[in-house]
Design a protein around this nucleic acid. Structure first.
Lengths: 86, 86, 86, 86
DNA sequence: GATGCGCTTTAAATGC
DNA sequence: GCATTTAAAGCGCATC
């Protein structure tokens, strides 16, 4: 190694790589924490006497409804574009 | 190996394994063929002047609608079961 | 709209479009059914005591070998063609 | 139904259920946003000339190492407790 | 209370 | 490069 602090090691921008990995790991930590939170909410619901299976079903149904709305909008946009109105 | 045709090799039912793999490979062949057929239909549609992007969108939208119907039915069944009417 | 049964609606051949979508959906149904069949075969294998992870590995290995064979054959054909023997 | 605002509908605490579903959906939204952020980071890394496949490998390796460290620490705690030093 | 099993979610691979 | 498709992982549930 020479004495400078050139971040290029083996042709790779080491510092930039390190920062990238750090950001990913931080974001994944947060994501993991949210997953744990969701799990907690289900646990609490269960201890309140709710049937988590039903709750999961409701959530998934509403998710489908949301994506259908989204798809429909995108389809409309496609049509508009197709007939030159976009 | 001894002279008999004992299918047990190394504790594994060799013949049964072979048949299982054969069945899987045959089914995957058929699946692959269908994928090719679908691709053909899109190609033909395109050569008829259709915008395949729109067609794909329509198909996916209809798929979502179908799964929503299905989810809704399953949710209903869950409710019925929950209130002892299933 | 006028009273005839002209399939052109908004510049789109509505009937042809409908048929195309129907064909795609039918083919995708069949494809989905085959995927379910494959899943069943794996389930049965598991209940026979096989390790499905290993079976999946075998299947994928054989797939690679098959494509290698195919490549080799195509290469051979190329050679044959190149020397005027195809 | 009577005129009061009893949240019990069909034996289900409707308000509590609604709040539960809201919380889950909000948390899943945030989770989805984080997933998108992570995807962005990978995209940026790629446009900086990094091989995302390698980055993914590094991240997953570090994840394993981290869990190994954690395991080791828990093991140590167990030992400490076992000898009355916890 | 532990184990196994299916399912949902997530990561990787492939093809367009 | 993106989107689809497929393999793998994690989780919750049921059973013993």
């Amino acid at each position: 190694m020479d004495g400078d602090n050139n971040p290029q090691i083996g042709g790779i921008a080491a510092d930039a790589l390190k920062q990238t990995i750090d950001r990913i790991e931080r974001l994944e930590e947060e994501k993991k924490a949210l997953a744990a939170d969701i799990k907690d909410v289900y646990s609490q619901a269960k201890s309140q006497g709710f049937d988590t299976k039903i709750i999961r079903k409701i959530v998934s149904l509403r998710k489908i409804e949301a994506s259908e709305r989204e798809e429909a909008e995108q389809l409309l946009e496609l049509y508009m574009a197709a007939i030159g109105m976009a």
